[in-house]
């Protein structure tokens, strides 16, 4: 039986259908989890997709973190369940305290939708375990607030514990230490700004996102 992956939907999320389509490509069964429900519904993994939860008003993720489903997601993560936040989902996870740091406005103060090259820095996470260490993946970015920032102490800890899982080859947004994705201490919660679901077909320009998505359901 294929793995069940829950894709969280807040009002304002917009990548949830894309994520369901991508999950089908890697043989998983995606289902939507409504933000107002206080459960993860017994799924095997949770993805918080991209979009503009609650309009990104106040700050991206600032309102979404208080949605009822987030308590269940936190509990699921604490029990070791795989949780991946993509783009807006990464912002939600940092606001919710499930990942360290914060995402600020891009260095160029513009929204940026563009191809990006990512280097796989660590394969010890639920997002990168099926990828090849040191490989470079073509995965597009699409964000205004993707400039990862954290204090020096946190950065040192992330480096020491090998928790920077993806770095930009050519930093597009000013992220500290070229960080594109990080994981928690348990390595089961990962956030990244790029969109692996947008790199799942030759017709769309790249299939490099599949290695990451396969890791989630491995």
């Amino acid at each position: 039986m294929s793995l069940r992956v829950g894709v969280v939907v807040f009002p304002g999320s917009n990548c949830e259908q894309d994520m369901l389509e991508a999950m089908a490509l890697v043989g998983a069964e995606g289902e939507l989890l409504w933000h107002g429900d206080e459960t993860t519904n017994g799924v095997d993994a949770v993805i918080i997709p991209g979009g503009f939860a609650h309009g990104d008003y106040l700050r991206p993720g600032a309102i979404a973190r208080f949605s009822p489903v987030m308590a269940a997601v936190a509990e699921f993560a604490a029990s070791g369940g795989p949780v991946v936040g993509i783009c807006n989902g990464f912002q939600v996870l940092t606001e919710a305290g499930l990942l360290p740091g914060a995402l600020q406005k891009n260095r160029g103060l513009k929204f940026l939708c563009a191809p990006a090259e990512l280097r796989v820095e660590s394969t010890d996470s639920i997002l990168t375990r099926s990828a090849e260490a040191g490989s470079v993946l073509q995965v597009p970015i699409n964000h205004f607030e993707g400039n990862y920032t954290c204090d020096a102490e946190t950065l040192a800890q992330l480096r020491d514990e090998d928790r920077i899982v993806l770095r930009y080859v050519d930093n597009p947004n000013g992220s500290v230490d070229d960080i594109a994705g990080v994981c928690n201490a348990g390595r089961n919660v990962v956030g990244l700004m790029p969109h692996p679901e947008r790199a799942t077909s030759e017709l769309l320009g790249s299939t490099d996102g599949l290695a990451l998505l396969r890791s989630i359901v491995a």
């Binding site: 609650h54 309009g55 008003y57 106040l58 309102i63 208080f66």
Partner: peptide, 14 residues
């Protein structure tokens, strides 16, 4: 003020 009214709507939850 969409931002103001969205924040206001979220407050009772807290």
């Amino acid at each position: 003020d969409p931002q103001g009214s969205t924040i206001e709507k979220a407050l009772p939850t807290l």
